[in-house]
């Protein structure tokens, strides 16, 4: 399953560069546009070969970890990605923790109190979470929390290894902003999964046995409702990476998202390709992980009859 998807993704990413208007070599060759220089560059970038050969060369390079060099700075794209990835992973993991802490409890509460005030309130908040543009929320939070109250730094990044406390402080607001939409998704899914489970026979039995409502909800119902939520969480990592692009831009965090945006503006296409490919591969890997987790959590899938 993952292999044809990977192949097609690589084809799409490689095909992107063919969308470029004009001849990028003319720009690279400089003012004089010496035919000899252009011919040299053409050979160097294998542009004289047919499309499929260019693609195969590119795949061979990518498989050996060579994504080409940044057209701007000459630094290998793989080095750039390796530098920026930890920053974004820290942001994404913190955001995911926030989203889980917000989404699952409110989802449970909403399902248990279905049709009552807490349910309506939770739904209204979830809807706002989905509708609010997260870069705007970031700007508003900076204005209030950093500028007015002077509580948290407005921008920047401190590596976790250098100063853990300061690192968490700078990442607090960005990860919260990134978590809003995800928290809303998780809340909605937890709610519907819990509603499905709460109306099932074994929950009625558990209640009839006279178990405490808390035990019924948290032990019997939640455990079964968690299954779809676990898979959803892994799948949402793709969304997280995309959302990180905007969050990093607002809070000036030197991560993956900032890398691709800066690359777009400096027309550093090799970097753009590398980042898109990495994101897609990461997403496919997460899909695979979701399938495996699903089997591990669900005992019925572990021993097929």
């Amino acid at each position: 399953m993952a292999i044809p998807t990977l192949f097609l993704v690589s084809l799409i990413v490689f095909g992107l560069q063919k969308l470029l208007p004009g001849d990028p070599l003319l720009t690279m060759a400089g003012e004089e546009r010496d035919p000899a220089v252009i011919e040299f560059l053409r050979e160097k970038y294998r542009l004289n070969d047919p499309f499929y050969m260019q693609y195969l060369y590119w795949v061979r390079d990518v498989l050996t970890g060579d994504f080409g060099n940044s057209l701007r700075t000459g630094v290998p794209v793989s080095t750039l990605i390796a530098q920026k990835l930890p920053v974004t992973i820290q942001l994404a993991v913190m955001a995911m923790i926030f989203a889980l802490l917000i989404g699952i409890p409110t989802g449970i509460m909403s399902a248990v109190k279905k049709g009552k005030a807490p349910d309506y309130a939770a739904n209204a908040i979830a809807l706002s979470g989905v509708s609010i543009p997260n870069f705007w929320l970031g700007i508003i939070l900076i204005m209030v929390v950093s500028v007015q109250w002077r509580l948290l730094p407005a921008s920047g990044y401190v590596p976790l290894t250098e100063d853990p406390i300061q690192s968490l402080r700078t990442m607090l607001m960005p990860s919260f902003v990134l978590a809003t939409a995800l928290g809303a998704y998780l809340m909605r899914h937890t709610r519907s999964a819990m509603l499905g489970v709460l109306s099932s026979d074994y929950i009625r039995t558990a209640k009839a046995k006279g178990l405490m409502p808390r035990v019924v909800v948290l032990k019997h119902a939640l455990r079964n409702a968690l299954m779809p939520i676990v898979t959803l969480t892994t799948l949402l990592f793709g969304e997280l990476l995309a959302g990180a692009v905007l969050t990093e831009q607002v809070f000036t965090i030197p991560g993956f998202g900032k890398l691709i945006v800066d690359a777009v503006f400096t027309r550093d296409y090799a970097v753009v390709q590398g980042v898109v490919l990495c994101t897609a591969v990461g997403f496919i890997f997460m899909n695979l992980l979701a399938d495996i987790l699903y089997i591990l959590i669900n005992p019925r899938l572990r021993h097929p009859q």
């Binding site: 995309a242 753009v272 897609a280």
Partner: peptide, 14 residues
């Protein structure tokens, strides 16, 4: 497999 916004950014870039 390519997140919505990343694909849109890449296409807009190219």
């Amino acid at each position: 497999a390519i997140p919505f916004l990343i694909l849109a950014i890449a296409l807009a870039a190219f």
